[in-house]
Nucleic acid binder design. Sequence first.
DNA 1: CACCGTACCGTACGCTGTACCGAGTTGCAA
DNA 2: TTGCAACTCGGTACAGCGTACGGTACGGTG
Lengths: 282, 282
Amino acid sequence: MKPDMATTRGSRGDATRSMELLWGIGPTPTRGPKQGLSVERIVDAAVALADDEGIDAVTMRRIADALGVGAMSLYTYVPGKAELIDLMLDRAYGEVLAAITSEGDWRAALESRARADWAVYERHPWVVRAAGPRPILGPNELAVNEATLRAVDGIGLSGPEMAAVVTLVAGYVSGVARGIAEATAEGETHAPEGTWWTERSAVLDRVFDAERFPVSSRLAAEGVFDGDESAADYLANEIRVTFEFGLERVLDGVAALVAARAAGDGPPAPAPPPDGAPRRQP
Amino acid sequence: MKPDMATTRGSRGDATRSMELLWGIGPTPTRGPKQGLSVERIVDAAVALADDEGIDAVTMRRIADALGVGAMSLYTYVPGKAELIDLMLDRAYGEVLAAITSEGDWRAALESRARADWAVYERHPWVVRAAGPRPILGPNELAVNEATLRAVDGIGLSGPEMAAVVTLVAGYVSGVARGIAEATAEGETHAPEGTWWTERSAVLDRVFDAERFPVSSRLAAEGVFDGDESAADYLANEIRVTFEFGLERVLDGVAALVAARAAGDGPPAPAPPPDGAPRRQP
DNA sequence: CACCGTACCGTACGCTGTACCGAGTTGCAA
DNA sequence: TTGCAACTCGGTACAGCGTACGGTACGGTG
């Protein structure tokens, strides 16, 4: 799983190579046999596999099989699996980038970003689980970020506030998107939606005490938690409604801030950076 | 990795066993040798391991080593690794449950829930990555849910709205918490924070175009994205500020809804469930 | 032409989760 | 008391993972 991490991941060549791959500026060698594949095609295959069978099905061997090559051949194009996943994620950001629009006011633009994220999570449920804590720093990710920042530029917010609003919206969507995999189901979890619940409800019924969980059981009686087991799209609709509802609240909250700043309430004094900290790009 | 999933995961005994484990109602056998371990101690060891070295270090063999037993002995207590992780997660919910308070109005209670979640994500960064899309249905998870629902009960929201507000707050926190691992760092990603950036910034500088990313580069020049590489707690503070900022917005958004409902704007007509759908508990 | 950097990939290693089975231990029934 | 069934423990084994290593075939450059 992580063999000799010290040399593999630690050798500072890999990070550079990874960035070059993302930005498509790798040095293309002239000598030797023609390359039969391309990074593009490898990412294609990996994404298709992840869409069809979930992220767990994405193994180097299966990708190679799909491309009709040996597993080790992939390593001539990509330093390792982690870098390949980064490429997959930046490709997903590419779909976001293609979908967002900057028309309308800041609210419309933020909505557009949120819905574009959501659409990608729906099309590619694996993205939620594949995404690590760190940014990819790929061209598409940065472009999406730029576009979102532009949406909230010039409406009276401070720089840190702008960045925080972007994190707020993107964080909200990714948080709620966790539930998407349940709705689309089956791709990731191999048991169909129905059995999962019925298996558990037997024990749950024995243990769920209406006195211990009064509000929960009242809402359950109202049917709030009901879902049609066999019709996955009903569930998908339900979670979509929840998403839209929450998005409205989030944007209302931002609107309140924008209104306050417009009314002349100055932004809080920005905390000075501690001292000569190395510069970071976004 | 997933050997014979059909028999192992599909045999309907496992889901039942898993629920019994969570709720502590397993049938305790009388015959045979005394048990040298307990589910409790196994979860203890697993959580300790995850806290120290990240979720990837949590393997059956390492847990067993820490407990001084053979790897296979764990399987007398727990059906498999997936169920063990569920137990770890419900334990984390237990810490949330212990931290939340129901004092004050709905807003204070929701804040309390959000901060309790956040504190757990800080103490146990592995939770973000270990949590799957489905609910655990353990006692602590349900109790936390109940407490949060109670916070928004009786303030004029419909049942679905109450549920959506809970999802909104919890989803927001988990979404932003994704960035925590970067702040606490090093537990999960073995490279220290500094090198990760410096390695990449070399390529990024070559590729980052101020004309293509005008707003990003302006904010970068302002130092918005700067961080002290060596002092991890500065970064942690920065993300904490972002978290608090977003939480404020989210709650402002909920407040707007509560005010609207109080002003007499009726909730939207609840969509009727399609037809005789099996009942779900929360 | 020879050379050598490169693409491809068979083999192998260390790791994973866990099935299988034997050996030893205990409580209850006969 | 004896014997058996139920149980715990754990060694061994297996399929699958990421990927290091080294061999072979190829093709542009000296």
